[in-house]
């Protein structure tokens, strides 16, 4: 049996991925999370002195808080099974990755367990974010100093 034959066999026997169904579910799940986020943002704008621009920070924090509660009660994995990427791409998916790692390693202690393993899954996201922000700011600073663009 050569490689091509095996690939064909595998393709025939493995169940077909319901691509359209997955996409629709991901769309609905991600859309629902964003709808909740929009309501949270609206709440901060209505009852506190936040503008559309400044309301984003407390909104993100609140959404991560919701994700924390759902992860702790074991509900977020059900949402993840249903929605796939729709539940992983918004900030709640990032929160889930951090929090589930923290919960998993709690038995090893707070410093070496939770502290050491919390960012195992999602630490690269933070690292990339900080580093790319640094690079972009550096480029912009140089361009401003050269007089190409203004702030």
């Amino acid at each position: 049996m050569d490689e091509k034959k095996y690939a064909k066999l595998e393709k025939d026997t493995s169940p077909k991925t319901p691509l359209m169904r997955n996409m629709i579910f991901a769309f609905l799940t991600g859309g629902t999370i964003c709808l909740v986020g929009q309501f949270v943002s609206l709440f901060y704008m209505t009852y506190f002195d936040f503008t559309e621009r400044t309301a984003s920070n407390p909104t993100v924090a609140t959404m991560i808080f919701f994700a924390m509660l759902l992860t702790g009660f074991g509900l977020y994995k059900k949402i993840g099974q249903f929605g796939g990427a729709g539940s992983a791409v918004p900030i709640t998916g990032f929160g889930n990755a951090v929090i589930s790692a923290a919960i998993e390693h709690k038995s090893e202690g707070y410093v070496l367990g939770v502290g050491g393993n919390m960012f195992k899954l999602a630490g690269s996201v933070i690292l990339f974010g900080v580093f790319s922000a640094f690079v972009v700011a550096l480029i912009k600073t140089i361009l401003v100093k050269l007089g190409v663009v203004s702030w």
Partner: peptide
Amino acid sequence: DVTVSADSKIWM
């Protein structure tokens, strides 16, 4: 002294 804003909070 003119100020223009497209922010929905300001609109509210």
